[in-house]
Design a binder for these strands. Structure first.
Length: 569
RNA sequence: GGGGUGCUAGCUCAAUGGCAGAGCAGCGGACUUUUAAUCCGUAGGUUCAGGGUUCGAAUCCCUGGCGCCCCA
């Protein structure tokens, strides 16, 4: 493709989308879209549904084109299943639109959908993702799709014929009505959506529209007749209710998913919309939708890459405390927005990856910092450079950064040994670089806060440093003369060596002095052994283990008074 | 059973028919190095297997194997 910058996958899609948009409607704003169903926590896998078009839309904007990123909130979808941890009484709401289901107990939000949309919207804002949200509840209940619905009903036979091409299981057993209830139940149990979606088959014929019951609000309805002339539609509900409505004025119901989606492609003029790999089977909504949008609605199918799943590594307490998979908001508590953006930008959509909630996050941050240095000194590879640029900001501007990006690993360690005490944290951080000391913790935020949150919520207790409250009397009692002397040498020098560098010198010199060597003697193998032994003794006395954070750091964090106490002074 | 997708260095991944490459881990060193580093150097390969197309294949086609996902 001529002119393609060929730097990364985002650029290539942007080329493709711009070309396609020019072909379809030159000069008009380019539309990229995401669809999210707020049926439960919107997790990091769902974030890919947003990040993929976001990155492409952002690249398009960077090139000076007008581009709209629509997030379609599928909040008019049926409530399928009561998730674990929710009052089983919510089962009575199964089949209602998500916006008609009460939010979980204790939620400040008006309904189920809002409860799960809100944290996602906040996370998207933090990540610098600009979008135009469209509530499908508002669209349907305001009659925005009136013409499209009436049209789809008129064209129901053609739609049915197209769907029939993909139905692997013909209605061999025959009982359409029975099948429908089975599917409703199966969907209620399964909870996963698109592929098991009721496509609108029923005993009285095929109808691509499903009303929500006017009495019970649920979608356990069956269309029994429809008149194209009058637009009168009759339905019955399992609750016993039945009525006849005019579709030309009725606003409580929706097109079945496989028709709804292509209808909206045409309605919004979507040029780019990705979908999960579960849409990659032959009869999937994306494939079927493509044919329906072309043959029925006379529109075009968007460019739609399939994206692979996003996994999680670690997640110590997450599952137990929050009862589910982590959300973007959870991730943003332990990592800065640019890092999270980077994870999605650096991998092609069809490539699955994991987001680190365990120790891996430290390595990841190291890699990120190393990349930033390469970018700064101009040695970054083009693809890495592109991913970095997409991570740190958008066409609208840069995202907030940490002024002094101290290594995440270091911050985590400091928070660990200082138990989060901000005064001690600042003291240790200030000593990191005496030539250019950190004046305020704010210079290391927000990264410091992310690291602190990670340490307290994700690091297993047995890996945390826990300074002893009381001296290990038994161990102190059992020490030999040489060991006692080493402790005394350390304690004697403590006051005049109370800084990171001086303490480093001190702890290494104690074994030298004991061996009768000057403090600046060159190390010998024997000396190294003695030093290790000395360090282990100190770790045992201070934290009850053989190893720990570097001693100077640890000593500073523990404080002179407590050190004296624990070392038996 | 059907479909999708992936398989490249120890690990995570690049290379979009044209010299198989990075990061991390490893190893050696600078520099006393411990759950805090940084820098320099270094090694690392039958690109899952087999066949085909091609002047040329990690890349395209076919067959098989294994992993993951979806459907039935």
């Amino acid at each position: 493709m001529a002119g393609s910058s060929e730097t990364d996958w985002v650029s290539r899609f942007a080329d493709e989308v711009i070309a396609e948009a020019e072909r379809r409607a030159p000069g008009k704003a380019i539309v990229c879209a995401s669809g999210l169903s707020p049926s439960g926590p919107i997790h990091l896998g769902n974030l890919r549904e947003v990040m993929t078009p976001h990155l492409v839309a952002d690249e398009i904007r960077r090139r000076g084109y007008e581009c709209v990123h629509i997030i379609s909130w599928d909040d008019y979808d049926r409530f399928r299943k009561v998730p674990a941890g929710i009052d089983p009484a919510w089962a009575e709401h199964i089949g209602k639109p998500l916006t008609s289901v009460p939010a979980p107990q204790g939620s400040p939000y008006a309904n189920w959908a809002e409860h799960f949309k809100a944290p996602m919207i906040a996370a998207l804002a933090e990540m610098g993702i600009e979008f135009h949200g469209i509530s499908q509840t508002e669209q349907y209940t305001s009659g925005a799709y009136r013409e499209q619905i009436l049209f789809a009903m008129r064209e129901r036979e053609r739609i049915d014929a197209i769907l029939a091409q993909y139905r692997t299981k013909k209605p061999a057993a025959g009982q359409g009505g029975q099948r429908q209830v089975d599917e409703a139940e199966a969907a209620a149990i399964e909870g996963s959506g698109a592929a098991t979606e009721d496509d609108g088959s029923a005993a009285a014929g095929y109808f691509p529209y499903k009303p929500y019951c006017s009495a019970c609000e649920r979608d356990l309805t069956t269309v029994t007749s429809y008149d194209d002339e009058t637009t009168e539609l009759a339905y019955t509900c399992v609750c016993g209710f039945s009525e006849v409505v005019r579709l030309s004025e009725h606003n409580r119901g929706k097109l079945v998913w496989k028709v709804d989606w292509p209808m909206r492609w045409k309605y919004e003029g979507v040029v780019f919309e990705p979908s999960g790999v579960d849409h990659s089977s032959p009869g999937s909504s994306f494939v079927v939708g493509g044919q329906i949008v072309r043959d029925v609605f006379g529109g075009d199918q968007p460019i739609g890459p399939m994206y692979a799943f996003v996994g999680i590594s670690g997640m110590a307490k997450m599952s137990s405390s929050k009862g589910g998979v982590p959300t973007p908001a959870d991730a943003l508590e332990i990592m800065e927005a640019p890092l999270l953006r980077w994870l999605y930008a650096r991998r092609k959509p069809n490539q699955s990856f994991k987001i680190a909630f365990d120790q891996e996050i430290q390595r990841l941050y190291d890699e990120w910092d190393a990349l930033a240095r390469k970018v700064a000194d101009g040695t970054a590879l083009p693809a890495d450079l592109a991913a970095h640029a997409r991570a740190i900001g958008t066409a609208a501007g840069p995202l907030p950064t940490t002024p002094r990006p101290v290594s995440y690993r270091t911050l985590a360690s400091v928070v660990d040994v200082s138990a989060g005490d901000s005064e001690q944290t600042l003291r240790i951080l200030r000593d990191l670089d005496p030539a250019d000391p950190i004046a305020s913790l704010d210079e290391t935020r927000p990264r410091l806060d992310r690291a602190a949150h990670w340490v307290t919520t994700q690091v297993p207790l047995e890996q945390r440093t826990r300074v002893r409250d009381e001296p290990d009397a038994e161990l102190l009692e059992s020490l030999g003369d040489a060991e006692r002397e080493s402790l005394r040498l350390l304690l004697d020098g403590l006051d005049e060596h109370w800084s990171l560098d001086a303490l480093t010198t001190l702890v290494y010199s104690v074994p030298k002095l004991q061996a009768g060597l000057p403090a600046d003697a060159k190390p010998t193998p024997e000396l190294k052994v003695a030093q290790r032994g000395f360090f282990a003794l100190l770790y045992r006395l201070l934290v009850g283990r053989d190893t720990g954070p570097r001693l100077p750091t640890l000593l500073l964090a523990v404080g002179a008074g407590r050190v004296r106490k624990l070392l038996g002074a």
